[in-house]
Design a protein around this nucleic acid. Structure first.
Lengths: 201, 201, 201, 201
DNA sequence: GATGAATGAGCTTTCATTCAT
DNA sequence: TATGAATGAAAGCTCATTCAT
């Protein structure tokens, strides 16, 4: 390999790293803004400023606000998926399903931003929703997550795995939503305690 | 009572009726717009037009968009409360709690607009939520609803009434949210079936 | 007529006058801006400022930049039409056609702004053109103008009226365009002289 | 001449050829874009992409969008000039002037892109036109074209050559403009027929 | 010279709210 | 109180040009 080739390669790598870094900074800033303000409320100017770049600098990376939003959700779902798989892998025999659901619940419990984003995700993001292509991609990621949980119940030998999966996720989402909006405090309960009771009545 | 007094009274009553009617028309129009477009997406112009009044005519009744939104939610919660009480009154002995929860579920199941509004309600409406005063008023109405359901379970002799109430509401909300956003279809189930399974496992 | 009714009417008239005045100010400002900068180059901010109103104040009158542009062109064509008809009415017997063409030429000769607008009109306004509806309306106005000129030639007893009309208008436009862009100076001639030579060789 | 010198020369020539080629590609792409979208509508990004180069690569060749535009017009005028000279050379005795004008007309008639560019040229491209230097250069090229036509009329023995030239060009431009904007259709005539009638009444 | 992301001003349009009438 | 135009501050996005590599 010639010195010239090495130099060219090194330069390309450096640029790619810079590119990736900046992209990540933008996504991180966007995640925070979207979590706080939602798709409509967050502004490209605000996101750019939070990322430490100028307004126009976002567009080479994401062609529109919606595309940026989709990238944020995509990242969130990827993390969620990894989190749940790890829980399943660690689960004692016969408890994989319950651990998978708990993984789902804990993931959002511990991450304020992810929950806010997830709520937009589970709740719809308003009248228009995402463009069909983006929505389809996110649906596929979500299907994977749900599938993993269902598989865990099947591995436990539960013949009602689909119902357990659906009801369990619904329970988690409902409790998280109610806790976040402080409606649960009306009942004097914490989401964690109630989810425990749901899993082991 | 003089004829003059009678006339003045009659006029005052007529004006008050007119006032109440107009207020109702505005709230009804706002409910539809908010349900379709959300708090951010709906516009005061659009609401006014749908109500058949001019833009400025809304403000004597509601000082801000947010206040109008709160009035809409207030109305929705009042209907919800009546709906649930009726179900409890009709319930067979020992089944009041389950019927109360089913009333909660059915109410939102059957009313697209109310559900859309309710989701904003349970999901939070943004960074700050409503102004504290408005939020407190809504919380009080919601506490009443939750209280009725809990009383129903107590009347059934359930000693775990609070937990049943909280978990049941969470389950209903979770299923409704998931069905509305078509995430439930991923699992091939309907919210109604799953809520049945939840109530009578 | 009661005093009340009179008051209401008076108020309505005053408001309408104010409305009309402001509309005219906006159109006048827009005409100047469009003449100088074209459809693309002119800005709504600039037009509003020139009219002495704020940006948003334009939109109750004209829903879009294009609609405002169409209003300007419409006004210009109306003036052109009146100008030519007056010339025809004053023309000596047998000279109506020539006077009509001269009216066309003089109208644009004397009005820098109108010419600039007209050139956009005769030249097309770029890739997109106006929305079909607006273009159709303007075409109809233009057809009227052309028709008047042709009728004048017919009244003069010219059997080649259509050709005289078309070629005469083309000659006028060509000379005006060349003079405006200072290409005519290259030939050391003035448009007025050349148009004379065209009309009476 | 040493081998070294030869090598250096060869390299320089290769580079110059590459330079010229790239320049031509950019001008060709720009011509198409400007013809379709005009000076304002065309974008440097779009031109660069169409030419197969990166955005920044245009600037070593043309310091600004306007300069690139001038280069395109310059090329167009060069072609026009050659086209007209060929027509004159082929013309029968006594018909050189008419053939020159017809050459002018046909050139634009047959080339949509050139016409679109030419219209910007004859119509002015906005408030300021091109920068004075660029405009002067184009004017010189145009003066040559006009001069050739005038010479042709002089060779035909016409003593009113300047007027014939100016009026003829104006007629051609007027008809082309009107046909392009479909205003001629209003009169039910084609530009070609009308230009014939103009040349031989 | 070539690259192409970055800059940042600029665009049209929207909209909650105000206010003269 | 009702009217509805006016205000003016955003918003998302574009683009000529620059500049570090």
């Amino acid at each position: 390999m010639s010195g010239f080739t090495r130099t060219v390669q090194a330069r390309a790598e450096r640029m790619e790293r810079k590119h990736a870094t900046r992209r990540e900074r933008i996504v991180a800033a966007a995640k925070a803004e979207f979590a706080v303000s939602g798709l409509n409320g967050a502004t490209m100017r605000g996101i750019a400023k939070a990322a430490g770049v100028t307004t126009g600098a976002v567009y080479p990376y994401f062609a529109s606000k919606e595309e940026l939003y989709a990238a944020v959700l995509e990242g969130s779902l990827t993390e969620l998926s990894a989190h749940i798989r790890a829980r399943i892998a660690e689960a004692a025999s016969g408890r994989a399903g319950a651990e998978a659901l708990r993984g789902f619940f804990d993931f959002y419990r511990e991450r304020t931003d992810e929950l806010a984003l997830g709520l937009y995700l589970y709740n719809g993001i308003g009248p228009s929703g995402l463009a069909p292509g983006l929505d389809r991609a996110l649906n596929a990621r979500l299907r994977d997550v749900f599938g993993d949980i269902e598989q865990a119940f099947l591995a436990d030998g539960r013949d009602d795995a689909p119902v357990r999966t659906a009801n369990g996720i619904a329970q988690a989402i409902g409790l998280l939503v109610m806790e976040r909006t402080r409606r649960l405090k009306l009942l004097g309960r914490s989401a964690a305690e109630l989810f425990d009771r749901y899993l082991e009545p």
